[in-house]
Computed example of a mutant assay.
Amino acid sequence: MTNRRQVLSLSLLALAGVASAEAQTPPYPSRPITIVAPFPAGGGADVVARIISDRLRESLGQPVIIDNRVGAAGSIGTTMVARAPADGYTLLIASQSHTANPSLYAKLPWDPIKSFAPIVLVGVIPNVVAVSASSPYKTLADFVAYAKTKQGQVNYGSAGIGTSIHLTAEMLKQAAQINLTHIPYKSDSESYAALRAGDIAMAPLGLAFAKAHIDSGELRALAVTTPKRSRLLPNVPTAAESGFPAFDVRPWYAFLAPTGTPPAVVAKLNAAITEAMKTPAVQAKLLDLGLDLDPGTPEALTQFLQADASRWDKVIKQAGIRLE
């Protein structure tokens, strides 16, 4: 009888201790949240994070800090988040490099799926296949037809080896069965300048950069790379509409946390970010960037990331691209 009383007393003390610890744990969030942007300030990921963070500060009741950790094609900031405590206070604004880098680099200290807890997809934004306004190519089919007669002799430019723009062109080469010569530049601006100067025949460009030059009449857009037309360029056909359905590039932005982040915290962040994206002011700014907003569940984001990683692994291996 005495032993039973002792066991019961110990059990009650243990339960009391758990209840006391839970009572002392402040509700999430109770301190500032940091969103790591692994690319420079003013870039797409940084801009998207800042637009959404303005609303998150209000809905979560805590400061939201944007921390630009730049370098190694986004890997420095991504590594920082992968190694951060899984408590919901350090998040990553991720983009296409997140799913492409593991196939580009021989060794990374993180896995795009296993190292992170998915929170929510923000949306996708097309790249634009562009030529100079003085170019003879009126459609993507025109350009491909010419390139097939000059295999390896037609130049294209990108914002650098391994970038979204470079990989976009590599997918076009494979989908259209053409051989183009890659001229890497340091930015979209340099690639655009080369296009205008006639140094290259074609350049895939980010929509946010390309639109102003298309609207001014300096560039001609042959196609957008996403399955749906862009609301910012409604008259420009998709690659699929142009006869190349396998040419499907969907640059994206999403929020991730370190793996092991409690499901309740992930669910709260998913709801808060989704709500922020639906507020008129935030939605208008994101739509003005050309984003096709597509928030969903963490499970849906996992499937999206897996499909995107598989897509780029195939393209990169076939192209034989490897970075150190």
Results as ranks from 00 to 15, higher is better:
Ala14Asn: 00
Ala16Lys: 01
Ala16Pro: 00
Ala19Gly: 06
Ser20Asn: 01
Thr25Tyr: 03
Tyr28Ala: 04
Tyr28Ile: 07
Pro29Ser: 01
Ser30Met: 02
Arg31Met: 06
Pro32Ile: 03
Ile33Arg: 07
Ile33Phe: 00
Ala37Pro: 09
Gly44Leu: 08
Ser53Tyr: 04
Arg57Lys: 13
Gln62Ala: 09
Ile65Arg: 06
Asp67Pro: 06
Asp67His: 14
Gly71Ser: 09
Ile76Val: 15
Ala84Ser: 14
Asp87Asn: 12
Gly88Cys: 09
Thr90Ala: 11
Leu91Ile: 06
Gln96His: 03
Ala100Met: 09
Asn101Asp: 15
Leu108Thr: 01
Asp111Leu: 11
Val122Trp: 05
Ile125Glu: 10
Asn127Gly: 13
Ala130Val: 14
Ser135Ala: 10
Pro136Val: 09
Val144Phe: 07
Ala147Trp: 09
Thr149Glu: 14
Lys150Asn: 09
Gly157Val: 03
Ile161Tyr: 12
Leu167Tyr: 15
Ile178Lys: 12
Thr181Asn: 13
His182Ile: 08
Lys186Met: 06
Ser187Lys: 07
Asp188Met: 01
Arg196Ser: 04
Met202Ser: 04
Leu207Met: 08
Ala210Leu: 10
Lys211Pro: 00
Asp215Ile: 08
Asp215Gly: 01
Leu222Phe: 05
Lys228Gln: 15
Ser230Glu: 14
Pro237Ile: 14
Thr238Asp: 06
Glu241Ala: 12
Phe244His: 10
Pro245Met: 12
Ala246Lys: 11
Ala246Glu: 10
Phe247Gln: 05
Trp252Phe: 15
Ala254Phe: 08
Pro262Gly: 00
Lys268Gly: 00
Ala272Glu: 06
Thr274Glu: 03
Glu275Gln: 12
Glu275His: 10
Met277Thr: 04
Ala281His: 15
Val282Tyr: 05
Leu287Ile: 01
Gly290Tyr: 06
Asp292Ile: 14
Leu293Asp: 03
Ala300Thr: 00
Thr302Cys: 00
Thr302Asp: 02
Gln306Ile: 01
Gln306Val: 04
Ala307Val: 01
Ala309Gly: 02
Ala309Glu: 14
Val315Gln: 08
Ile316Leu: 13
Gln318Met: 11
Ile321Ala: 04
